[in-house]
Design a protein around this nucleic acid. Sequence first.
DNA 1: TCTGCTAACTTAATCGTTCCAGACCCCATC
DNA 2: GATGGGGTCTGGAACGATTAAGTTAGCAGA
Lengths: 349, 349
Amino acid sequence: MPANRRTTLKDLARELGVSTATISNAFNRPDQLSPALRERILGTAKRLGYGGPDAKARSLRTGRSRIIAVILAESLTYSLNDAVASEFLSGVAEVLDNRGHTLLLLSSRQTQAQIPGSASMADGFIVYGLIPSLALLESLPSQSPLVSVDFDIAGRPTVHVDNEAACHAIAAHALRTPAKRPGIINLRLTATPLNGRISSDHRLLPPERTITRSRLSGFHRALGEAGVDTEQVPMWNIEENTFEVCAPVISEILDLPASERPDLLLCMSDRIALTVVTMAEQRGLRIPEDLRITGFDGIAEGQYRAPRLTTVRQNSVEKGRIAARIILGLAPAEPSLLATELLIADSCP
Amino acid sequence: MPANRRTTLKDLARELGVSTATISNAFNRPDQLSPALRERILGTAKRLGYGGPDAKARSLRTGRSRIIAVILAESLTYSLNDAVASEFLSGVAEVLDNRGHTLLLLSSRQTQAQIPGSASMADGFIVYGLIPSLALLESLPSQSPLVSVDFDIAGRPTVHVDNEAACHAIAAHALRTPAKRPGIINLRLTATPLNGRISSDHRLLPPERTITRSRLSGFHRALGEAGVDTEQVPMWNIEENTFEVCAPVISEILDLPASERPDLLLCMSDRIALTVVTMAEQRGLRIPEDLRITGFDGIAEGQYRAPRLTTVRQNSVEKGRIAARIILGLAPAEPSLLATELLIADSCP
DNA sequence: TCTGCTAACTTAATCGTTCCAGACCCCATC
DNA sequence: GATGGGGTCTGGAACGATTAAGTTAGCAGA
């Protein structure tokens, strides 16, 4: 026996003169053996440097790995820096942690149509956000539990919020004070990537390909009800919810001649809205007098400093918790619709 | 054979009348069999819904799981929302991704002295930040590769920056303009948790228990060189690098009578420094005229809006990349010291 | 004394691969 | 025609556990 081989359950059994089954029971089912023997086993285990049953072997034998994979639509770099995704993940992690499971993080990179082999040992998959490639979904073990978040996969449970209703609500609130020139800043709405003004030439992604399409519907419905011709409402598109990508588009908007510059901007994320706030202040615009701004998500950062953001709060942490509970079988595997909350603050009172 | 059992390599072999070894080779070593047979195997595999060798079985047989675990000192909730930790993770993820490995996320919860069993199947461990419990480190498989980040574990490779030198540099820069009342806002420096002013009664954590101790040394050395009596420099402590925890302490500082209020604040993180900026502005203080502020980390958010932060930039993404490379054996398992860069901007020109 | 039951262990099959050590065949070379 | 060497493919022993089913001993109850 090679000296550097790690100690196994079998070594322990030989050393103690008991069967491997008993050792296994000592670690997994204390009621199956006498306390005295169990003590002896645990003691010898420590002495021999045996750290408990090998996780790889156990997972093969039992068929379960106690690992749950979260597949993020965006790159890890982006997702980890996005407040909403981070909150979601921490909700997932909280539940998993409490049940002795661990979190495997994957991002769906456009370039690859398969998850890495190692990920397929996960006991379940949480797919967060719309995955670029359907092939990737098909590469997942077909009988593993799977829950989608913020989009639908036929026949699978999903966790989401009513984006249309929430956006209708916030826009309706905003429009109680009439706006001369309302505008909308969208997130990933056009069929081809675009950062800037959306003209009538641009095709939009179909509703099943982007969550923001239903946000737009909500905005439009409220605008229509307020007697605004939605065709006349200017729209801009932003591809990635980061400061760097938002900033140039927002410059373009705020640097319009005053007669064309919107006095109300409905934004599809708090990140966008906050960037608008910052850049508007730099230009000496008064909020909300010169420009009213609404966001979406309800991230903490939006409430730190004045003007606090008027926005729709969605509970991303809870979303994560629910997704995790469904995957672990602690909650029924059925669609779950979370409530949203209108948060009315300084940026659009 | 039960109908719902998942297809295995053996089933495929039987179906095709070849040995399991050949099937295995078809998936793992294409050069070991004729292209024609390989095609036939892959075709039948698809037809039978066989998605390739089972990851659990493979990991048992080969002894490697292609999973790397990252153990975070703080809770996942905190870490995922902290820009520095997020950047670090994205660096790790980038390298792992490219080499077909996946990322298992763990946080060292104070309450538990063991990692969850499932995590022990990881091929290597990256320990980020000072772990509260040593027992946890001991529970890791002793022969697995391990690299520590931002702190030392005897006999293990580590990735870090020279905190003392970096803090000396930024403080020395700041003090080229004399400060009447310099102050220091520390991060997790006291032996017992404290949010507020540090008095001479408080014991500090020993240097081996906190990275910020060496940051403080750097500050003190520069202050000494500038002829300041470091004993007289007021210090505050903050336990967690979040807005919520920082804010009350910073209020306390900024609301001091003008004659006692610092005119230079050396902060141990950008998060702290940015909160100071925000709260100082709210109080009508001019930056840098009334108050100069330095940070540490160089997070992107610090450069978004005026006044941009004077800080030490450390490349957290690169830290992650290097840690990952060491763990994967792509870089030698030796301590790695990353350079930092002084970023001089508006908050302390 | 016999029966039956329980507590405490053991036996041995099994999980799905990987990979070493051959075996076989075909073809080129001497 | 014998020899040797690739190129292909096979057999079967691990890998390190879990667990259903079986064994034994001890003891209570009739």
